[in-house]
Structures are given as structure tokens and as C-alpha cells.
């Protein structure tokens, strides 16, 4: 495009690669940033630079951190013997928003997938097995997505940990809070019915 400087064009191309943004919305965002140079563009550039330089994966759990180990792994109060296995960092953040879990996490970095040739070696499963062995874990909670890939991964992990002497549990599946039966798919309804409990 001859009507825009190369630098702006590059920024638009980069922004358009972000989730939720296409070329049109990236153009709008870049224009907004340039117009609000002092309050948005410069602080954003600085924030991006800092994140790029300091944030890395926690070598123990896979969470994002700027320290050697993440806050959760560094907190001794969270070493209560419970380890929650999640697919990625977004799931860890979701669990933390709930505030109900007080143990530690293990981020796999994906799920097993025949389609994408993702095997156990591509995930952090060997690290998980070592953690369960070395950290005095009593219960492993498999908080993986209720999808075919998610549950295939959960079964695989359960087999890997079968001889480790730990309790292996998984999240319940069923009707979400605020959910109306009429709007649920038949699979969710049958899973909820199977997992019914005394009232």
C-alpha cells in the first residue's frame, strides 16, 4: 500500500495475526494507537518489550512467570499434595479465577492429537511423572477439556501414573451453572445423568 508508511503497514500485519483481529480490525487498532501515542502506543510498546524480555515458562509447572519459579510453585502453602493438570496456561488462569483450588498446577502445553502428530514427548508428560514421584503428590486432578483429544490425554496420563500410588481424579462433566436443559446437547445431558448424585 503506497498510502501508508512501511512501518505502519508492518504493525498492521503483526496485529492482524493476533487472535480476534483481522486486517480490518488491526488497521483500526493501529490507527487508534497512533492517535493516542502518549497514553497508549508508547506504554504498550514498553509493556511488550518488558514481557518479551522477562516472561518465561516456569520450569516446574509450565505457568508464565518473570521469576525463576512462578508464584504458585514458590508458595509453600500450595504444596498440599494436590496437583491439577491443565492443558494450557489459559486453563490455569481459569482455575485460579474460580479460587476453589489451593494446590499446585502442571501445564501440559497441549493434548495428544493423532491429527497433528502430537505425542507424549511433545507434551510435558514425562515432567509430570517425575513431579508426582518427587514432590509427595497424593492426588492428581485431571482438569482437561471434555473433548475426544482432552480425554484421550487424560486416560494416557492415568495409565502413566497407574503405579505411582496417587489418587487420580478428574473434573465432573454435566450441566453448567445457569445452563438450561433445553439448550444442552444430548452428550452433555447423558454425561450429567451418568454423574448424578444424591440430592
Amino acid at each position: 500500500m503506497g498510502d501508508r508508511p512501511r512501518e505502519i503497514e508492518t504493525l498492521i500485519e503483526m496485529m492482524a495475526r493476533l487472535p480476534g483481529l483481522g486486517p480490518r480490525s488491526a488497521r483500526r487498532a493501529v490507527l487508534h494507537l497512533v492517535r493516542k501515542r502518549a497514553v497508549l502506543l508508547v506504554p504498550l510498546a514498553e509493556a511488550l518489550r518488558r514481557v518479551g524480555e522477562t516472561v518465561h515458562e516456569c520450569p516446574r509447572c509450565g505457568n508464565l512467570t518473570t521469576a525463576e519459579f512462578c508464584e504458585i510453585c514458590s508458595d509453600d502453602k500450595r504444596a498440599n499434595g494436590e496437583l491439577c493438570v491443565v492443558e494450557d496456561v489459559a486453563d490455569l488462569w481459569a482455575m485460579e479465577r474460580g479460587g476453589a483450588f489451593t494446590g499446585r498446577y502442571h501445564v501440559l502445553g497441549g493434548t495428544l492429537s493423532a491429527l497433528d502428530s502430537v505425542g507424549p514427548e511433545e507434551l510435558r508428560i514425562p515432567v509430570l511423572v517425575a513431579r508426582v514421584r518427587d514432590e509427595g503428590i497424593a492426588e492428581v486432578i485431571l482438569a482437561l477439556n471434555a473433548t475426544v483429544d482432552g480425554q484421550t490425554t487424560a486416560h494416557y496420563i492415568a495409565e502413566e501414573l497407574a503405579g505411582a500410588g496417587v489418587a487420580i481424579t478428574s473434573l465432573a462433566q454435566g450441566v453448567p451453572i445457569g445452563g438450561e436443559l433445553d439448550y444442552l446437547d444430548d452428550g452433555t445431558i447423558s454425561a450429567a445423568l451418568k454423574a448424578r448424585k444424591g440430592f
Partner: peptide, 25 residues
């Protein structure tokens, strides 16, 4: 338009889930 869900019936059964994966793959 969904006609019949099958994954929900096999998610809890490692072998049946592996059967579903093998068949579709």
C-alpha cells in the same frame, strides 16, 4: 445439525475412546 452425539458415551472408557480414535483416524 447434530443427530447423535457419540463422544460423550466413550469419554470415560479408555478402550472405547481409543476405538473411536482408531476408527476415525
Amino acid at each position: 445439525e447434530p443427530v447423535r452425539s457419540r463422544a460423550a458415551h466413550v469419554l470415560g472408557d479408555a478402550r472405547a475412546l481409543a476405538g473411536l480414535n482408531a476408527l476415525t483416524a
